[in-house]
């Protein structure tokens, strides 16, 4: 409803099946459990990376319903 009112959104998600129902306009899919969309507690660098991914997605996602999977793994270093 925010989009209909003119506000672009970027959504986080961790369950492809739920997202298929909710149909977010732009979404980033992570492999993290419920209650921790931005990864491990205290992983400042990763939290920042995901926010940067979100800013990038706003610019690059031009088709409604685009979902991009992020490569981050719980407690593993970020891919280069």
């Amino acid at each position: 409803m925010a989009e209909e009112a003119g506000f672009p959104t970027i959504s986080m998600g961790n369950a492809a099946d739920r997202m298929a129902h909710i149909k977010p306009p732009r979404a980033l899919l992570v492999k993290f459990a419920r209650g921790s969309m931005f990864g491990e507690p205290g992983n400042v660098k990763r939290q920042r990376s995901i926010l940067m991914d979100a800013l990038e997605a706003l610019k690059t996602m031009t088709k409604p319903g685009t979902i991009q999977e992020l490569p981050y793994q719980w407690k593993k270093p970020d891919p280069k």
């Binding site: 209650g35 969309m37 931005f38 800013l55």
Partner: peptide
């Protein structure tokens, strides 16, 4: 949902401190 990760670091579900840094 299990609050324990958010209790430990609220930025895991509400990354306000990271956003302020940006």
């Amino acid at each position: 949902y299990d609050h324990s990760l958010a209790e430990e670091d609220i930025n895991t579900i509400f990354p306000i401190h990271r956003l302020n840094e940006l």
